Computed example of a mutant assay.
Amino acid sequence: MPEIQVKKVVDLKKGSYVWYNNEAWEVLEMETAKTGKHGSAKARIVIRSIISGKTTELVKPTQDPIEVPIINKIRGQVIAKVSDIQYTVMNLDTYETFDAKILDDDMKGRIQEGQKVLVWDIGEKIIVQGFKE
């Protein structure tokens, strides 16, 4: 599980991330509406899971707290291909090795041994970008 920070719902923006159902989710849409004379403002948030790609909608008061994951970005180099979606990566700063997955269908098959990559640690390590030498 990544490090979690608590923010108010009103502080979220499109493209930010939330921690929901023990997963990191990206905010796709966010709109707020005042509900009436004595009601509090509500936010409608459309989010997509980074892991599974599912989308869902949340409706919350804008002043409510919401958990936001702190995503650690790791510069790495691919050491070995374990499977079509799993690779062994070496951290270029600490030289430790770890396994990371590729979830983006466009990247599958394009990552090769020796290639430098950007890995997000969100409780699970995910390769999000590959770099050409």
Rank of each mutant, 00 (worst) to 15 (best):
A43M: 07
A24D: 12
D121E: 13
I85C: 07
D104A: 11
K13Q: 12
D121Q: 08
K101L: 15
N91D: 15
S49K: 05
I71S: 03
V128C: 02
E96F: 03
N22P: 02
V119L: 09
V9G: 04
M30W: 07
A33T: 13
L12W: 10
K108E: 05
I127T: 03
E113R: 04
Q112W: 06
G130M: 03
A43S: 12
I102E: 12
I47T: 00
E96V: 04
W25D: 05
V128M: 10
G114P: 05
T62G: 07
I66H: 01
Q115S: 00
E23K: 03
E113Q: 11
T56V: 11
I79Y: 02
E31F: 09
S49P: 13
V128Q: 08
K132Q: 06
P61Q: 11
N21L: 12
K13F: 08
F131A: 05
Q129R: 14
E31W: 01
S52A: 08
K81E: 14
D64N: 15
V68T: 08
Y87H: 07
T35I: 15
L92V: 08
T94N: 14
Q5A: 09
Q77G: 10
D84S: 07
N72D: 14
Q77W: 00
I4N: 09
M90G: 06
G76K: 02
T55D: 10
I102F: 11
I127H: 03
E23V: 00
V9W: 02
E133S: 14
T88M: 14
I47S: 04
S52R: 04
V89R: 03
T55F: 04
G76D: 06
D93F: 10
D106W: 03
N72T: 11
Y87D: 04
G123R: 03
Q86P: 00
W25Y: 15
G15C: 09
V78A: 01
K60Y: 10
T97M: 09
K60T: 06
D84R: 07
V10I: 10
A41D: 13
G130S: 07
S16C: 07
R44T: 08
K132M: 09
I71W: 00
Y87T: 04
R110P: 07
V46E: 05
Q86M: 10
Q63R: 09
N21M: 11
E31R: 13
D99L: 09
D99Y: 01
G123I: 10
K132P: 04
V117Y: 03
I74M: 09
L28C: 00
W19Q: 04
H38I: 12
L103F: 10
K37H: 09
I79C: 06
K73F: 15
Q63C: 03
E67L: 05
W120P: 06
T88A: 07
D11E: 14
E133L: 13
D84V: 01
T62K: 13
Q77F: 00
I45R: 06
G36D: 05
A80T: 10
V27S: 01
M107F: 12
A33M: 13
